[in-house]
Amino acid sequence: MSIYDRGAYLRSMTLLREEVPSFGRYPFHLPVVAAMERLDFHPKVTYIIGENGMGKSTLLEALAVALGFNAEGGTLNFNFSTAETHSELYRYLRPVRGAQRARDGFFFRAESYYNLATQIDALDREPGFTPPIINSYGGKSLHMMSHGESFFATFMNRFGGRGLYILDEPEAALSPYRQMAMLSRIHELVEQHSQFIISTHSPILMAYPDSKIYQLTSEGMQEVALEETDHYVIMKEFLNNRERMLGELFSAE
């Protein structure tokens, strides 16, 4: 049996290439989309990484929407829109699910997390919401915390295990210490039969050992080891050779 069949809620994602209207327009012209046929997911943790502009967030957003999540984040029960900005890519994706169904799920998107927090507060002000939604996030309005604290409140309180969690740049407001704590939380949830798909720039978050890393480049997508990622190589080089690299960065051309 393939590792992708054991306990995976989401086994793969296929692009319906024959139905794509044109690979010459956004988002289909992005190298990751233009070269895609099928993307296999690790049953525990899959990382989607790459430089800015490579299409990581576009890909994760399309996957989440294809699975029924709101484009701006939240659980499958959220249905709000601050701005209709998501691409049509989701219409051409076919997720292949595993035999088991997740009991929990969440699309975490750092870019629109403020909108999600605002929506939770708004819903809790309406009559009929008992108990309040915010109780699932720790009981305190996410707007009443620092950005990083509110992120972590969701990770610690709302993620309940046996879930499929899609995270787009969850490290955006987290210190290095909190990123390590997040890695520990990911492990706790994996041990509770959860599956993660994560877009990140953080070498710390990429370090989960039982995982699969896809690196997006101008040529498309390739599977790599942590030590082969640009993020790891550049960070290691900078820390080990800080003075030389600063000299190169600050030198006049």
Rank of each mutant, 00 (worst) to 15 (best):
F23V: 08
T75Q: 00
Q100R: 05
T82S: 12
S2W: 02
F155T: 01
I204Y: 03
Q119Y: 15
L63R: 00
L174E: 05
Q215E: 15
Y165K: 09
A83E: 13
R94N: 06
A172I: 11
L89P: 03
T130G: 08
F107S: 00
H29E: 08
M156G: 08
Y47M: 02
L30Q: 10
F196V: 11
D230G: 10
Y232H: 13
L216A: 13
S141M: 05
F23H: 08
L142T: 00
N157C: 15
L59A: 07
G98I: 13
L239E: 14
Q195N: 09
R94W: 02
L60R: 01
L123D: 09
R242M: 10
E219A: 15
F159C: 05
M54A: 05
V190K: 03
R109D: 04
E237V: 05
T75E: 03
N240H: 14
H187F: 09
F80C: 04
L39W: 09
Q179P: 08
A102W: 00
M221S: 04
E243K: 14
I166L: 15
R11E: 08
M145G: 03
S251P: 03
S12D: 01
G220A: 12
Y208W: 08
E126G: 03
R178D: 07
A252C: 10
R101E: 15
G160R: 14
E111D: 06
P95R: 00
I213K: 01
G68H: 04
K236Q: 15
I186V: 15
F152C: 03
N77I: 05
A83K: 07
L226I: 14
G105M: 10
G163T: 06
K56C: 00
A110F: 03
Y90W: 13
M180A: 14
N135V: 12
A252G: 08
L76S: 05
V190T: 06
H143Q: 08
R94A: 14
S184Q: 12
L183W: 07
D168T: 10
A153M: 09
R25T: 09
R94E: 09
Y214P: 00
F129Y: 15
F108I: 07
E188Y: 15
L76C: 05
A122M: 12
P132D: 03
Q100N: 12
M245Q: 09
M180T: 12
N77C: 02
Y137F: 15
P31L: 10
E61A: 05
R94K: 13
N241K: 12
E19F: 00
E191Q: 14
